[in-house]
């Protein structure tokens, strides 16, 4: 067993877990943060994407102990004071989803992408989301949502 303390969405969380516990399972089972999905469990689908110390990673391919002492941001930590993050708003408004299962991972990956490329081209978006699969194949609206999210984050096209 290992004692780990991880700052999740701004709050320190300390738990005793088995060394083999995956970060995804830590978030879901220990903390009840079930917004982080586990889709394929083979590091292909990206549904489990969270940010560890500011970098988008697949939480199903990382042990919770590896994140000991780190800052983790999950989909639950994006909205502030009841107000959706611009990328969440964009996915909602563009209907960048069909069944919604991949959406948390898509959004976390998008937020990561926009940090490096605030004004991404279509090509940047497609390559930037290579680690995420939408099995409904709802990619057209996802790409639209990323473009809109980028625009909102750059402070253009404010609506609300």
């Amino acid at each position: 067993m290992a004692k780990v303390t991880i700052k999740v969405n701004g709050k320190n969380q300390t738990r005793n877990v088995e060394d083999r516990t995956l970060l995804a399972d830590f978030l879901r089972d220990e903390l009840g943060l079930t917004g982080t999905h586990v889709g394929c469990d083979t590091s292909q689908c990206g549904c489990c994407t969270v940010h560890v110390n500011g970098r988008a990673v697949k939480s199903c391919s990382m042990l919770a102990v590896q994140a000991n002492g780190a800052q983790v941001l999950t989909i639950e930590g994006l909205a502030k004071n009841g107000k959706l993050h611009p990328v969440q708003r964009a996915f909602s408004e563009c209907h960048g989803l069909q069944c919604g299962f991949c959406t948390p991972g898509m959004i976390m990956a998008t937020v990561g992408l926009l940090k490096d490329k605030p004004n991404p081209s279509e090509d940047d978006i497609i390559h930037g989301l290579e680690g995420n699969l939408c099995r409904c194949t709802g990619y057209i609206n996802i790409v639209k949502a990323v473009k809109m999210g980028a625009k909102l984050m750059r402070g253009k096209g404010k609506r609300r």
Partner: peptide, 9 residues
């Protein structure tokens, strides 16, 4: 290599 998440780790 891989995808962005893989490249981050």
């Amino acid at each position: 290599i891989g995808d962005p998440q893989v490249r981050n780790m």
